[in-house]
């Protein structure tokens, strides 16, 4: 019985230490990924995307996938900037994911973000297989850009919007997710 109690105490101690370490790692991760300097573009791997979707902290997430070569994406971007301006960053996260290549961050992505006076964080997609990234966001999505995905505060996808959206349609979709989920 005594050894059982010792084992139990030991188990809980180890469990406590591990969970604290994980918590710290997650905190560090959040500080790093959603960087305040919006001209720093990081690569989005599978684990980064998983954490982004998991660590919602009660906030809605709008993910927009775009590319510098995609004309409707470029046309839609000012509406995303306007949208990010209109929402309290403590309520809604707006995050862009560029489908350009990671080696185009300096040559194409950042100049475009600068020109747009971007006010939300952006990543560049760097999954080993493009198809895995597409399917991770939505099985029904064929990969056509732009595409927008809205997640509720628990990280469940509630809206999938294909093609160029307007400020109003994006705002309406966020409000619906806010109201219904």
């Amino acid at each position: 019985m005594k050894s059982f109690i010792v084992m139990l105490v030991l188990f809980f101690t180890i469990f406590f230490i591990i969970s604290r370490a994980e918590e710290k790692a997650e905190q560090r991760f959040n500080e790093n990924t959603l960087d305040k300097d919006y001209l720093i573009v990081r690569e989005l791997s599978e684990t980064t995307l998983d954490s982004l979707l998991r660590d919602r902290n009660g906030k809605i997430l709008l993910l927009n996938v775009w590319a510098t070569w995609c004309m409707p994406c470029r046309e839609e971007f000012p509406d995303l900037v306007k949208l990010a301006k209109s929402y309290d960053a403590n309520m809604v996260d707006i995050v862009g994911i560029s489908a350009d290549f990671p080696d185009e961050i300096d040559s194409k992505i950042v100049p475009f973000l600068k020109e747009q006076e971007v006010n939300f964080p952006n990543f560049v997609q760097n999954f080993e297989k493009q198809e895995d990234f597409i399917n991770r966001l939505n099985e029904e999505w064929q990969g056509a850009l732009p595409a927008t995905f809205i997640y509720d505060s628990s990280g469940n996808q509630q809206r999938y919007l294909l093609g160029k959206q307007s400020y109003n349609s994006l705002r309406r979709a966020i409000e619906e997710v806010k109201r219904d989920f």
């Binding site: 198809e131 597409i134 990969g143 056509a144 850009l145």
Partner: peptide, 10 residues
Amino acid sequence: EIKAFGCTIK
């Protein structure tokens, strides 16, 4: 079936 990024059909 294998997907890829592309332009949306307008």
